[in-house]
Write a protein that binds this DNA or RNA. Sequence first.
DNA 1: ATGGCAGTTGCAACCCTGTTGCAACTGCCA
DNA 2: TGGCAGTTGCAACAGGGTTGCAACTGCCAT
Lengths: 168, 168
Amino acid sequence: MPTQPAPLPVTAPVPAAASGPEANGQATAAIRAVGARATPARIQVLALLRQTPDALTHLEVERRLGPLAGDRVTLYRTLDWLVSAGLAHKTTDAARVFRYAATGPAAPHGAHAHFHCADCGKVFCLESAAPPPPALPAGFHLQRVAVDLHGQCPGCAAEPEPSAEARP
Amino acid sequence: MPTQPAPLPVTAPVPAAASGPEANGQATAAIRAVGARATPARIQVLALLRQTPDALTHLEVERRLGPLAGDRVTLYRTLDWLVSAGLAHKTTDAARVFRYAATGPAAPHGAHAHFHCADCGKVFCLESAAPPPPALPAGFHLQRVAVDLHGQCPGCAAEPEPSAEARP
DNA sequence: ATGGCAGTTGCAACCCTGTTGCAACTGCCA
DNA sequence: TGGCAGTTGCAACAGGGTTGCAACTGCCAT
């Protein structure tokens, strides 16, 4: 974790990461650091994830990167590779789609919460919200806890309900 | 934590609900209570959900009810209708499939936790596990909290890994 | 008890997300 | 610079879920 000046608990990986070669350089270094090949697809995808505060779907990544991300299958594989390499993590959206977000540059991305915006559909990783000690009934063996918060993100909460189309 | 002599918080909707006409009668009443038509498909599906302690996928419902549930599309619509009517609720599986569980006969099914078994894939609704007070960053408006616990259910935890086939 | 209609159902086709197999290509190390 | 293991791209597939539309039926008014 190089710098983190913001009090916002939302993970803002690599704060003011330039969208240009600087971010790519950092992404390349991170990929090499885990002993893997730094290919264009991986570099671009990781750099993008690190610049984005919210978790992205494969489609969103595809749209933002265009041909830079490689083809659809490559993107799926790239994203899964990033997850297995510990550089990103994966969550399941309510709409049955996977969303990916970069883990902190060094942090192993421990258990944390996700905030799902009911209006725009974005998913934010929250650093706070330590997993509660759930009192399970007898016989249940707990391994992992996932906390999903639903509501409105700052952007949507500020606006006076522009598009009335997302309602749970 | 092997055992914990505590009353099982797992929701057992309609305690000793008979699997026969009694359950159907209660289901019919519940459906009528929300001002809707009590059709065979709805009655059967709701009665089944109320007899089942864990959340079911559409496929599981289809298999257990056979032709009683109507065709596949009808079942989807029935399940979604039950959700919108407040008689059931819907969760997203780790495998990106929807699972449905009946809400309490009267309770509006407030916030609660789900336990996902990593071995058999079953999903249990837990009454306990009061949602923690999440300290959200400024601007976020919280509406709902979902807690998903992952691990082994009592059945799978007891057995010495019988069938190695259910691995997400 | 009957009629009518809004609400349901069934069928068929479709979309979308995600996966697999395999051949061609290329980053990286020696 | 050369070689190969690791990646990529293409194509085809799988499964879950959705949509459009015509036929049917539970329920209320008569």
